[in-house]
């Protein structure tokens, strides 16, 4: 597994992206992250819920209760308009950062 401190700074964006695609519940998101990265990056539940809490407080996502499973209602997360705008901005910012860092990381 890669050093996760660099990824940590981008967790908000990673999770926003997954919720942007479709409303999801917590475990679904952590499974999806492992699946898409081929287990090269796994998110810890504690980290995931800290991000949910932060995003919800900043009104970038909201939650609602969905279908019943495993003896309770699942809590789904949904991106808000603000969240979508924020994510798009983050993507543009990332393109910029990537180019800048690449200037120094490539060609050696």
């Amino acid at each position: 597994m890669v050093r996760s401190d660099i990824i940590r700074g981008h967790l908000d964006a990673i999770i926003l992206r997954l919720i942007y695609e479709k409303d999801q519940y917590g475990y679904e998101i952590s499974k999806e992250i492992s699946l898409r990265t081929n287990d090269r990056f796994q998110i810890k539940e504690a980290t995931l819920y800290a991000v949910f809490q932060r995003l919800e407080r900043r009104e970038l996502i909201e939650s609602y209760f969905g279908d019943i499973s495993h003896g309770g209602k699942r809590r789904y997360y949904k991106i808000t308009k603000l969240g979508k705008a924020y994510f798009k901005e983050t993507v543009e910012e990332w393109q910029e950062i990537k180019e800048i860092i690449n200037i120094f990381m490539e060609g050696m």
Partner: peptide, 17 residues
């Protein structure tokens, strides 16, 4: 209330795992 909601959510997800 936030804490209760989150705990329920975490318990449920961990049980599923």
């Amino acid at each position: 209330e936030q804490k209760e909601l989150m705990m329920q959510d975490i318990i449920q997800n961990l049980e599923e795992k």
